[in-house]
Design a protein around this nucleic acid. Structure first.
Lengths: 220, 220
DNA sequence: GTCTATAGATGGATAGAC
DNA sequence: GTCTATCCATCTATAGAC
């Protein structure tokens, strides 16, 4: 809502280019999320953003740099929200939050983003796609930058100190997979399979279902 | 082991082209699985297979047709194995197998394929990639061809008739996500996060862990 | 700074020789 | 049937006019 990227172009010419850059950023994120990274050309992006063809290279250097900048921005925003929720849960519980609250700190941010009325709805799809279709540079970051996950692993370990470390990591791995499953295509398939009774638009309901499943699985 | 595609080229000229077609098929599957569908060119495939550039179009019509043929073959093989295991579990249990056996019929085939010494190790990666990077035609099949999943949904419903249908479908959805998480990249990340204590090569151990987690989650 | 025109590279597909 | 040479479309990136 307060994202400067989503504001209308201001009158001052100095900020006109900021608006152009933002238009490219948003159009690119949307198209990448919907159609995949390799299926969107610079021409598609500039056409969608109603800017000239050279804008991508002028403002971002290259198509790959643009992709990477979107990736860095969105993942850092998401991880910051998760870290904040985990921190709050720890404060409330006197330093040792229960498993369900830890899982909630991980699940809730991307689910709230995915609400039908949320501007960030598309960002979640972008992030999930980055995991499988990202450039070598993005995959390198995904592989090596695990500090935010380490905090969750530590919290889960503290919540269940008797559980072998190896089990904590594997179960965390399964839990991460549940989030990656939140793609449009997978929701579509589930909707088709269930004859239409599953409603992913009810994000609070989905959050409860994910927490029920993951908590039981982790405590097994 | 007995896959005709993996045999050496026979002497008869009539079967020489069969060997060429098989070489293209295997090289393509391998490269697609490792590097992604869009990152592999027809030139890469024919070079890897040591055949001439025109082979892909001659034997398969187009790059997309080749991709689709690999996809159809591997998914049908995988679903057949799963259906057979589910059928055997039903026979053993007198028509109503327990949840854990149903889950095992779904998890075990791709895990067995993924064993370090199995030729099909790469096929699992191909199939998982198809889910996010596939062509429109492949995604259409993935979305609409849910008959094999319906059998699992029915079995799970029968095993827990008191659970609302909606919950059965959502929990099945989460379970599917666990399989999709079995990618090289995700294993690498987990390995990095855990400091190297997780060993995905131990497929029987991994199967047990997946079953423990999924069974507890489904029965929550 | 913006935009058009185009360079430069790559990839899928195919014609035609053998 | 196999293979080479080539066509043609498409894409990223950039030079240069305004």
């Amino acid at each position: 809502m307060t994202d400067p990227l989503l504001q209308d172009p201001p009158d001052e010419t100095d900020e006109a280019q900021v608006a152009t850059k933002a238009a490219v950023f948003n159009a690119a994120e949307r198209l990448f999320a919907l159609h995949g990274f390799q299926n969107v050309s610079v021409r598609d992006i500039t056409a969608e953003a109603r800017v000239n063809l050279a804008s991508v290279n002028y403002h971002f250097g290259s198509k790959d740099s643009l992709l990477f900048e979107i990736f860095r921005r969105r993942t850092s925003e998401l991880n910051r929200e998760r870290a904040r929720m985990l921190h709050e849960a720890a404060a409330e519980a006197g330093g040792k939050p229960p498993v369900r609250e830890i899982l909630k700190a991980y699940f809730a941010p991307p689910l709230r983003w995915a609400s039908p009325d949320n501007d960030r709805r598309i960002s979640v799809q972008f992030i999930i796609r980055a995991r499988s279709e990202g450039t070598a540079e993005m995959r390198e970051v995904l592989r090596n930058d695990v500090s935010h996950l380490a905090r969750f692993a530590d919290a889960l370990t503290a919540a269940r100190p008797e559980l072998p470390k190896e089990d904590v990591y594997w179960r965390l791995h399964f839990i991460l997979g549940m989030v990656h499953q939140n793609r449009f295509a997978e929701f579509d398939r589930l909707h088709h399979l269930s004859g239409g009774i599953t409603r992913e638009q009810d994000v609070e309901g989905l959050l409860s279902r994910m927490l029920d499943f993951a908590e039981a699985g982790f405590l097994a």
